[in-house]
């Protein structure tokens, strides 16, 4: 039994694998926000259950969204 999580429920399965997501769209801010902390930092794979491949895609999408300022680097 692990320590109880404060905000995030640990997930066992990769959401993108189970939903058969074709690709992660960097324009989908609502989706990306679900994988960030309140301060805008990327949540770890362990926290979200995302598989290694999809975590890489997710990271790339988040970087792109930050690049065009539709997501911030750090939430104030």
């Amino acid at each position: 039994m692990g320590m109880p999580q404060k905000r995030f429920q640990r997930r066992k399965f990769c959401r993108f694998c189970s939903e058969k997501t074709e690709f992660i769209d960097y324009k989908d801010i609502k989706l990306l926000r679900g994988f960030l902390t309140e301060r805008g930092k990327i949540l770890s794979r362990r926290m979200t259950g995302t598989c290694a491949k999809h975590q890489r895609d997710l990271n790339e999408s988040i970087m792109r969204a930050r690049n065009i300022a539709i997501l911030s680097f750090v939430e104030k």
């Binding site: 930050r66 300022a69 539709i70 997501l71 911030s72 680097f73």
Partner: peptide
């Protein structure tokens, strides 16, 4: 739209 951070001293783009 409001920019998530300032670019070239602009808050909107």
């Amino acid at each position: 739209r409001k920019l998530s951070y300032e670019i070239k001293k602009q808050a909107k783009g």
